[in-house]
């Protein structure tokens, strides 16, 4: 009589439970009304069940976002776990919607759920993809813009995972600076 192998029937637990949110830009509704929780998951298997079931970012309409955040953190600056933080921001050109967007977003998700940034993963709050006519954006949000070491570790490893050439710089901006900016650009606190 065989002993069952747990590998065959136990799902693989993630370090964190994650929540996937969807934002659809309906101008007749408020920002918070447009933000919907899709589902939460905390195993590798349940992540793929969800990922394989939903549209890729390149298929979303303009003004739509996906946000993947640790359970309990809302995908907004105002959340207590975000308000002192900031984001590594990647701005894509129009051509990259077809070439890179979906692949980059999947890599971003795998970095988060796999805790790819080692101890610095504790600083990660979530990730956001914005689908916009001028160019799509990808970001990893972290909880405290003063945690330089963790932020630099995340930025360097993220850039490596996405195969971004080393001469192409990406910047980290605090949410405080982003929310209070007067022009169209926000200053970078860090770059890699």
């Amino acid at each position: 009589s065989a002993v069952a192998n747990p590998e065959q029937y136990i799902k693989h637990p993630l370090q964190n439970r994650w929540a996937l949110w969807y934002f659809k830009n309906d101008k007749s509704k408020s920002w918070t009304e447009n933000l919907r929780l899709i589902a939460k998951f905390d195993t590798v298997e349940d992540f793929w069940a969800l990922y394989n079931h939903i549209q890729q970012p390149s298929k979303l309409g303009y003004g739509c976002d996906y946000c993947l955040f640790k359970d309990g953190i809302k995908p907004m600056w105002e959340d207590d776990r975000n308000k002192l933080g900031g984001r590594w921001l990647m701005t894509l050109n129009k051509q990259q919607r077809h070439n890179d967007l979906d692949r980059y977003w999947m890599e971003t998700l795998l970095c988060l759920i796999g805790e790819s940034f080692d101890e610095a993963s504790d600083d990660v709050c979530g990730a956001v993809v914005n689908v916009r006519p001028k160019g799509d954006k990808l970001a990893i949000w972290t909880g405290n813009c003063q945690n330089r070491d963790a932020i630099m570790t995340i930025g360097q490893q993220y850039k490596e995972r996405l195969n971004i050439p080393s001469k192409a710089l990406i910047g980290y901006q605090s949410h405080d600076d982003t929310s209070s900016k007067s022009g169209s650009t926000t200053k970078n606190m860090y770059t890699v």
């Binding site: 370090q15 992540f47 990922y51 795998l110 796999g114």
Partner: peptide
């Protein structure tokens, strides 16, 4: 310790049959 999964391990589950 932290439950870390590398990219290839995670990808190997994308098209697995559902758990029974």
């Amino acid at each position: 310790g932290k439950k870390q999964y590398n990219r290839d391990f995670l990808l190997s589950f994308q098209f697995m049959p559902a758990c029974v």
